Amino acid sequence: MTLAQVVLELALVVTTMLVTATLVFVGPRRLVAAVRGYRWRLEACLLPIAALGVVLALRWSTRDVVLRLERRVVGHNITHTLFALEQRLLGETPVVLLQSIQTEALTEFFVFIYIYGYAFLLLFPIVAYFALEEMEELSTLLLAFTANYGIGLVCYMLFIAYGPRNFDPLVFEPLLYDAFPQSRTLTNQVNQNTNVFPSLHTSLSMTVFFLAWLTRDRYPLWVPLSGFLAISVALSTMYLGIHWFLDVVAGTVLALISVYIGVNYTVDGIVSTGRRYLARRFDRIGKPGSE
């Protein structure tokens, strides 16, 4: 399959899931109200949307630069360290244990979760929170996503880490490509094989679940579904041989940090704080006798 065909299939499946979930969880009335009031909703979330857009643009536009910095200047290869730590702490890496119980049905389930379920999990809360009467929850979600991508980008520059399937294909099976070979076309476009520590699949999924719990009064039924999907995504990354267990742990910690940032800060507040800090620094530099 070509990249266009893979993307089209992904879009069709995820759109079907989004429409179904929107009708069930959000409801027609909220949806109609959101469509009618889309302008003020977008204006209320303009800064978080812009911040996320900037971080994503930096992530995609600087891929080659980041890769060179990672491999030649900054990055430290921690793959063997991750593998050794898991064996020392757990006796055996959970990836081996998960793959030891593989079945055709289980592999199909985790492939579906990793590709389609993950995309749905990230997109649906945007729709759901957009339909609320206030945009605080959506702004929090977008800022938390921004923190995930931003911190993740820094980690990928600092740490070179190959996933189990690339570390030792004889021990760890590349089940994603074996069961769904066309996914290679998509993953090669959006990721590097050293972008492993932490697992952004895990961090973003857990971010959605943690925020679903914090906003459970808004969509109570979304909490168990988001939790099931988030845990399934985390397990799928190991079952399919993509991430180590420690990547998943680090991703969960990153999710907690990102949610904290999203809940306790705003983009406007962060920008204002940065401006005040820079103003003080320039003011000190301009004074006689300053450093």
Rank of each mutant, 00 (worst) to 15 (best):
M1A: 11
L3D: 04
V6T: 10
V6L: 05
L8T: 15
E9S: 11
L10F: 08
V19M: 14
T22H: 07
F25M: 14
A34Y: 08
A44D: 15
L47A: 12
I49M: 14
I49Q: 10
A50Q: 08
V55G: 01
L58D: 07
T62L: 14
T62M: 15
V65F: 03
G75F: 01
H80M: 12
L82S: 02
F83K: 11
E86M: 11
R88L: 15
R88H: 12
L89Y: 12
T93W: 03
P94C: 02
P94K: 07
L98T: 01
Q102M: 00
Q102E: 11
E104D: 03
A105S: 07
L106C: 04
T107M: 00
I113K: 07
G117K: 12
Y118A: 06
L122D: 07
L123S: 11
F124G: 02
P125R: 01
A128V: 09
L132Q: 14
E133P: 04
E136N: 13
E137A: 13
L143G: 02
T146F: 00
A147D: 03
Y149W: 10
L153R: 08
C155R: 06
F159I: 09
F159C: 06
Y162H: 09
R165A: 09
D168V: 05
L170V: 14
V171P: 09
L176E: 03
L176V: 01
L176S: 01
D178T: 05
A179Q: 01
P181W: 00
P181E: 00
R184H: 07
Q192R: 13
Q192V: 13
N193T: 09
N195S: 13
V196N: 10
P198M: 02
S203T: 03
L204A: 06
M206T: 06
V208R: 03
A212V: 02
W213Y: 11
L214V: 05
T215K: 05
P220M: 09
L221I: 00
V223E: 09
V223F: 05
G227F: 04
L235D: 11
L235F: 15
L235K: 11
M238A: 08
Y239I: 08
I242V: 14
F245Q: 07
G251Y: 02
G251F: 02
I261C: 01
G262P: 04
V263Q: 04
T266P: 00
V271E: 06
S272C: 10
G274M: 10
A279M: 12
A279Y: 14
F282N: 15
K287H: 15
G289F: 03
S290R: 12
